[in-house]
Amino acid sequence: MHNPHRFAGKVAIVTGAARGIGAATAQRFAEEGAGVLLVDIIPEVMETAAAIGGTGFVVDITARDAGLRIEEAAQAAFGRIDILVNNAGIGGSKSLKDTDDTLMDRIIDTNLNAMLRVTRAIAPHLPRPGGRIINVSSIFGLIGYPGTTAYAVAKAGVAQFTRQLAVELTPEGILVNAVAPGVVETPMTAERLRDPYYIKLQVKPTPIGRVGTPSEQAAVIAFLASEDAAFVSGVVIPVDGGYTATRYTPNDE
């Protein structure tokens, strides 16, 4: 059940918000009363923002000045920033032997380095106390999985960044947490979800027996941004249907 007043008067920035988890998260914040700046490199973010009554902002998250530009856009639109959701990321990773320097740099810069730079620019503008930072890691940052080396390393970095930032900012009143999504049905996973081997490795061993939805990730992100999570900081929550907590083999016979 959504609370239309839970984030009344608050402003949230959501990166990677044109589609998938980011779009669902932005919608959840808007439905619960927040002003939302939706950030993405894809121009479609303007349509996504218009549909939920938010403000869209097109920027390449890896640009060195992206954080400053995002902060200025949020201040211009809303006059304040309370919540930062670092969701922007890309897939396309391969095993290390098949990963050239160009791919390695692109994946790690987009999924990790850009997050550090954007957070560094936004964090000084969050309220103390009351600010919230929620990062999107991945179960691939928590466990080993074949063929995802650079992506997995970047997402493991996101998890450690979350813990490190909690040490630095929680004493000032800013809570920092992360979610680690399991398999979620998004445009980024659409091709893999057509691969029987991926289904065998990822979906079937999930005790809940299905892939997740973006709105299920958004619900946990919204919890971490709310006052209900006032005593939670420095944690990475797997939102994965039980995948990382179990060793489950379905009986297909």
Rank of each mutant, 00 (worst) to 15 (best):
I21Y: 01
L224F: 09
I90C: 00
M188V: 03
R80T: 15
D195G: 02
K200D: 14
G54K: 08
G182V: 07
A225K: 02
G212I: 07
V220M: 15
F231C: 07
L103A: 10
G67S: 06
E185V: 10
D40Y: 12
Q202K: 04
V118I: 15
P205T: 03
G22N: 03
A8Q: 15
T102S: 14
H5Q: 15
T99I: 06
P207H: 12
R69F: 11
F223N: 05
T102Y: 05
D101C: 00
P181S: 05
G56R: 07
I134D: 03
I81V: 15
S93R: 08
I61D: 04
I61A: 09
G131I: 10
E32I: 10
V236L: 05
S137R: 04
A150K: 00
I83W: 13
S215K: 05
V232R: 02
R19P: 01
S95F: 03
E47Q: 11
R120C: 06
D40P: 06
Y145P: 00
L165Y: 07
K94A: 15
I41Y: 14
Y198D: 03
A166Y: 04
I122H: 10
T15S: 15
T148A: 09
I208M: 13
T110K: 08
P129R: 05
Q27T: 11
G92Y: 13
V211T: 14
T48R: 08
A150L: 04
T149I: 01
L103N: 06
D60Y: 07
R210E: 04
E227M: 09
Y151S: 00
A24K: 02
A23K: 09
L112E: 04
I81E: 08
